[in-house]
Computed example of a mutant assay.
Amino acid sequence: MARLRVPRRRGRPRTRPDVVLADEACSSRAIRAHLRERGVRAVIPTPVDQRNHRLRRGRPPAFDREAHKQRNTVERCINRLRQWRGIATRYEKTAAVYLAGLHVAGVFLWSVR
């Protein structure tokens, strides 16, 4: 989370996004505390055990379902990209060639839509 960067059109990349969408596996105290310190809104579903703990402490779990629906689009895109064996298994040795493979796969997926 500390190395997270948000690209811009010009200038340095931002180091603080507005919102972080994640699944239940990323719902830990450390991650939530880090996001809170940086002023980032966390849209992470709370697992049942953590939900009960938060309720006992008097903090009701807040979760924005509408914002979390956007995560589904990203997950489906990643799954479609992983159908390309070279991308899924990371055959390419250099980052430049891997990025080129992502671009080619993206073009094909975009044109097939």
Score class of each variant (00 low, 15 high):
Val19Pro: 01
Arg54Met: 14
Thr46Ser: 03
Ala2Gly: 09
Trp84Met: 03
Val6Asp: 03
Leu21Lys: 02
Glu66Lys: 15
Val43Asp: 08
Gly39Lys: 10
Ala2Asp: 15
Ala42Gln: 03
Thr46Ala: 02
Arg71Ser: 01
Ala62Asp: 12
Glu75Asn: 05
Arg12Asn: 06
Val104Asn: 05
Asp23Thr: 07
Arg65Asn: 09
Val40Gly: 03
Arg5Trp: 05
Asn52Tyr: 11
Arg5Thr: 13
Asp18Tyr: 02
Arg16Val: 15
Thr89Glu: 12
Val104Arg: 06
Arg32Phe: 00
Arg85Gln: 13
Ala96Phe: 02
Ser27Pro: 01
Val19Lys: 02
Ala42Leu: 03
Pro61Cys: 10
Gly58Pro: 02
Arg57Gln: 15
Arg10Pro: 01
Arg38Lys: 15
Arg14Phe: 05
Ala96Met: 05
Leu4Arg: 11
Arg59Asn: 09
His68Met: 06
Phe63Pro: 00
Thr89Tyr: 04
Ala95Ile: 14
Lys93Asp: 12
Ala25Met: 01
Leu21Ile: 06
Ala100Asn: 11
Ala95Gln: 13
Ile31Lys: 01
Leu99Ile: 06
Thr94Tyr: 09
Cys26Thr: 03
Gly39Tyr: 11
Lys93Ile: 14
Val74Glu: 12
Pro45His: 07
Pro61Gln: 06
Arg90Gly: 07
Ala100Tyr: 08
Glu75Met: 04
Val20Gly: 03
Asp18Trp: 02
Val74Cys: 06
Thr89Val: 10
Ser27Arg: 04
Gly101Ile: 03
Arg5Pro: 02
Arg29Ser: 08
Asp18Asn: 04
Pro60Asp: 08
Pro17His: 05
Ala2His: 14
Arg36Cys: 11
Asn72Asp: 11
Val112Lys: 13
Ser27Phe: 07
Arg9His: 09
Val74Gly: 07
Asp23Lys: 08
Ile31Gln: 02
Cys26Asp: 11
Val48Thr: 07
Gln50Glu: 15
Pro17Val: 05
His68Gly: 04
His68Glu: 02
Cys77Met: 14
Arg9Asn: 10
Leu81Phe: 14
Gln83Ala: 09
Leu55Arg: 15
Val19Leu: 09
Ala67Asp: 10
Gly86Lys: 00
Arg9Leu: 14
Asn52Ser: 13
Trp84Ser: 03
Arg54Tyr: 11
Glu75Asp: 12
Arg59Trp: 06
Asn79Met: 01
Arg71Ala: 00
Gly11Ser: 03
Pro13Leu: 12
Asp18Val: 07
Asp49Leu: 12
Arg10Thr: 12
Val19Gln: 01
Val43Cys: 12
Trp84Pro: 01
Val6Cys: 08
His103Ser: 14
Ala105Trp: 00
Ser28Glu: 00
Arg113Ala: 13
His103Lys: 13
Asp18Ala: 13
Val97Asn: 14
Gln83Ile: 03
Leu99Asp: 14
Phe108Asp: 04
Glu24His: 08
Arg14Leu: 15
Lys93Cys: 08
Asp23His: 04
Ala95Val: 15
Asp18Ile: 00
Val20Glu: 03
Arg41Cys: 04
Ala88Val: 06
Val97Ile: 10
Leu55Ile: 15
